[in-house]
Amino acid sequence: MRALGLALRFLWIGVAGQMQYRANFVAQLARSLVGLALGLAGLGVVLSNTPVLAGWRARDLLALLGVYTLVGGVIGLFVRPSMQALMRDVHLGRLDFALVLPEDAQLVASVGRVNAWSLFDVALGLGMIGYSALATGHMGILQVLTLVVTLLAGLAVVYSFWLALACSSFWLLKVENVLLVFDDLYEAARWPLSIYPGWLRWALTLLVPVALAVTFPAQTLRGQLGWWQVTGAVAAASVSLWLSRRLWLAGLRRYSGASS
C-alpha cells in the first residue's frame, strides 16, 4: 500500500512536470497513436487473409494487442526510466540520494523516475482490452479476477527481469545494450506465442519472460487459461520477485563495499 502511494506520488510528480510542455503532449499522443495504428494495420493485413490465426479470432488478437500495449506502457511508465537511471547512477557512483532516504531503497529506485507520456499507451491498452472484453460478451467476475491476477503476475515477472538486468550493472559494465534485446524480443509478443517455432517460444518464455506477461493475460479473455496456469503464473511471479530482491540486496552490499 505504502509502495502504491509512493508510486502514485512519483507518477504525479512526473505528470505535473510534463504538463508544462504542451507541444510534447501532441507529439507524444501522436506517437502512441502511430503505435496503435501500426498494431491495428498489422492485424488488418493478416485478418484480410484469414479469420482465425492459430486459433485466435479477431477479438482475441485485439485483446492480445491490448495487453501488449498496456504492459509496454507500464514498462515505459516506471520500469524503463527508473532502471535506466539506476544503471547510470550505479556506474557513476551516485546512488547516494536514493540510499539516504528513510524508505526502502529498491522501491525508490524502481518507481523514482517516470515517463508520464506512457500513460497514453496504458490508456490505449486498457481501451483495447475493454473493447475486446465487451465484444466477447458476458464476462464473469472470476474471469475479470484471473485477468487482473495474471496481468499483475506478468508485470511482476517483467519488472523482476529488468531489475535483475539493472542490478547486474553493480558487477558488470555496459549492460544497457542488453536492454535493447528486451525491446527487440518484446516486439514478438504482439502475436500469439503458438505461431513461433519451438526455440523462439522457449526464449520468449524463459530467457525474456514476455510470453508470461502478454500471452497469459490475453488468454484469460479467451477463457483458455486453466487454474494450474494461473497458479503457475503467480508462483513464477513470486519466485522472480524474490530472486530479483536477493540480487538487489547483494548489489547494494557490493555498492557499499560490504562484500568485497
Binding site: T50, L53, A54, N177, L180, D184, A188, W191, P197
Partner: peptide
C-alpha cells in the same frame, strides 16, 4: 559488441513476420 547486438532486431522482425505468415498459410 553493441553494433552486433543491434543486428538482433534485424533478425527478430523477419522471424516474426515469417511466423505470422506461416500461420496464415497453414490456416
Amino acid at each position: 559488441a553493441a553494433l552486433l547486438l543491434y543486428q538482433l532486431s534485424a533478425v527478430v522482425e523477419p522471424v516474426v513476420s515469417l511466423a505470422v505468415w506461416s500461420a496464415v498459410a497453414s490456416a
